Amino acid sequence: MSIKVTGSSGFVGQNLLAYLKATDIAAINRKQLQRVTPEHLNGAYVIVHLAGKAHDLKKTSCTDEYYQVNYELTKKLYDAFLESDAKKFIFISSVKAVADSVVGILTEDAVPNPQTAYGKSKLMAEEYIQAQKLPEDKSYYILRPCMIHGPGNKGNLNLLYNVVQKGIPYPLAAFENKRSFLSVENLCFVIKQLINNPIASGVFHVADDESLSTNKVVELLANASSKKAKLLKIPVKIVRTMAKLGDLFRLPLNSERLQKLTESYQVSNKKVVDAMKVPLPLSAIDGLTNTKMK
């Protein structure tokens, strides 16, 4: 079975290629993607579209770049897919295409209302895919992962891991939250299931089974490193003031990063698990415990 993957050099891409190592896989780089034609995709059974412009916490990216990469390139690739002989198209979107904040548990029934250029550009790509007439012998899958972690991760969980490794007390323990995470191994498992099984087209949220507080995550990362978790409960008002200073002086802790680390953001994975008819291989706790961040 031949698979073509965009974004293969990224965090998810590298893990996916390692996970599917026994499969015939070819990478489509950014230059090839910009001029992709149906002929470039012929002979492949599945197209996995991972390439995209990630959310920029430093706010240095041009807004138009999100739309050019996340929407226009996806549109170009999907058009080529529809005219090629490839059968399945898997697009990695984001829960941020639906909501930047969540009350309760986020499901696929929620009406999308993204607030950032990143989320809006991802949603535009989703809506384009769903609006096109789909031949009977083809399928599409739009995956909306929540915060992903695993080997090579460079996001907020890596920041937490570095804090734990250096023995620095975690200063946000006064915040109480519950949020969903996603082991990259679980994401790769879902992608493999979609590739290998006759699952109906659709939009699927992807998350580990359990939601965890950030304090619990710090404890898990500490235990995995044979260290004692140090939880410091600085008053919430003081922390928010510090984050605002981070906005002004571009410090590691800014308002957006504070929100990501302390907000409640729970995501249901019921739809995708029901569609696969098999459980995810890793629990949230096992995934975080087994993660060795770099």
Rank of each mutant, 00 (worst) to 15 (best):
S2P: 15
K4R: 14
V5S: 00
T6H: 07
G7D: 07
S9Y: 14
A18W: 10
Y19L: 02
L20D: 08
A22K: 15
T23W: 14
I28W: 11
R35Q: 14
T37E: 01
N42V: 12
G43A: 09
I47G: 04
V48S: 04
H49M: 07
A51H: 06
L57V: 13
C62L: 15
T63Q: 06
Y66H: 04
Q68F: 04
Q68H: 12
V69H: 03
Y71W: 06
E72H: 14
K76Y: 04
K76I: 02
Y78W: 00
K96V: 00
D100Q: 10
D100W: 10
S101P: 11
V103F: 13
G104E: 00
G104K: 03
I105T: 09
L106Y: 01
D109C: 13
D109A: 14
A110L: 12
V111G: 14
P112T: 07
P114F: 00
P114S: 05
K122E: 03
E126K: 00
K133D: 08
D137C: 13
I142W: 01
C146T: 01
C146F: 10
M147G: 12
M147R: 15
M147Y: 15
I148H: 05
G150F: 11
G155F: 06
G155L: 03
N156G: 00
N156M: 11
L159H: 11
L160Q: 03
V164T: 01
K166T: 13
P169R: 06
A174G: 12
L182F: 08
S183L: 05
V184K: 03
C188P: 05
F189G: 01
K192N: 12
L194N: 09
N196G: 15
N197K: 13
A200Y: 00
S201M: 05
V203K: 00
H205E: 03
D209P: 09
S211I: 10
V218L: 10
L221A: 06
A222G: 03
A222C: 02
N223H: 15
N223I: 13
N223Y: 15
A224E: 01
S225G: 06
S226H: 15
S226W: 14
S226V: 14
K227D: 03
K227C: 11
L231M: 02
L231W: 14
K233W: 12
I234C: 06
V236G: 11
L245K: 07
G246K: 09
L248S: 08
R250M: 10
R250P: 02
L253F: 02
L253E: 01
N254V: 05
E256R: 11
S264G: 08
S268R: 03
S268I: 06
K270G: 08
K270M: 06
K270E: 09
M276C: 05
K277I: 08
K277Q: 10
P279H: 00
I285N: 01
I285Q: 10
L288Q: 07
T289A: 13
T289R: 15
K292L: 15
M293F: 15
M293T: 11
M293C: 08
